[in-house]
Simulated assay, not measured.
Amino acid sequence: MLRATNIEKSYGDLPVLKGIDLQISKGEVVAIVGASGAGKSTLLHILGTLDAPDKGKVFIHDKDVFGQSARNLAAFRNTSIGFVFQFHNLLPEFSAIENVMIPGLIGGREERTVKERALSLLDMLGLKDRVHHKPSELSGGEQQRIAVARAMINSPALILADEPSGNLDSKNAVELHNLFFKLRTEIGQTFVIVTHNEQLAAMSDRKIELKDGRIKV
């Protein structure tokens, strides 16, 4: 489903990724681990098309994602890839459902359809009583579940998560980890997760360790 070949990336004279090859199958939960500075987040940003490699290619469903115009790439990213970050990145002035709906509306979908999908996701994630709450009225765990719902609003092929439980207490972290596996089991969702959390890495179907810009074998 996802394939990356010979990914290289440098910032100035500093090489960060030094020839990464990986393949992710549909329905996998894959953890990317490694020490700080190993290139984990850089790799995740390239897989998510938020950054371009200096060399190499990324394919999602056999589509060369960087072999298209910037406009088409942005549209592809919006519909095919969902993102969950450590600090939620929810807009404070909007309610839970409004935050979830944003990628669907950006994609030009009909508002009523997007709202129905958002309500269904919030219900699935145990947040039906928090629909109209703003982020400041929600716990950290609830905010992160809203971020997961937002990532899923366009039914993306792939969800990429960068330290998704890094800002949560242990109880909420466990609940978030279990949620990922529930979504994989129930709807076949694919996750690639950068994490320092050893428990989450151990739960994953596969662990990819980066060291000095390369996959450790």
Rank of each mutant, 00 (worst) to 15 (best):
G19P: 14
E163G: 07
M203Q: 11
L73H: 08
R112E: 15
R214A: 08
T49E: 04
K115F: 06
S170E: 14
K115A: 08
I187V: 12
K57H: 12
I60V: 10
F83A: 01
G104Y: 08
N6V: 09
G108S: 04
K211E: 13
A96W: 01
M1R: 06
R71V: 15
V84N: 02
L160D: 04
F94E: 07
R3G: 00
H133F: 10
K40E: 10
S69D: 11
R117G: 03
L138Q: 07
N72D: 15
V16D: 04
S204G: 09
M101S: 08
T5W: 06
K115R: 15
N99P: 05
G140E: 05
G188R: 07
G107V: 00
S41D: 04
L90H: 12
S165A: 12
D51C: 06
F66P: 01
Q144E: 07
I215C: 01
P156R: 01
P103L: 06
R130L: 00
H61W: 12
K134L: 13
E93T: 13
H132R: 13
A149V: 02
L176P: 07
H196T: 00
G67R: 13
T195N: 11
T79M: 15
L14Y: 12
A4Y: 02
R206L: 03
A52T: 11
S36C: 10
G126M: 06
I20E: 03
F76H: 00
I81Y: 04
D123N: 14
H45W: 09
E111M: 06
E198M: 09
K40I: 00
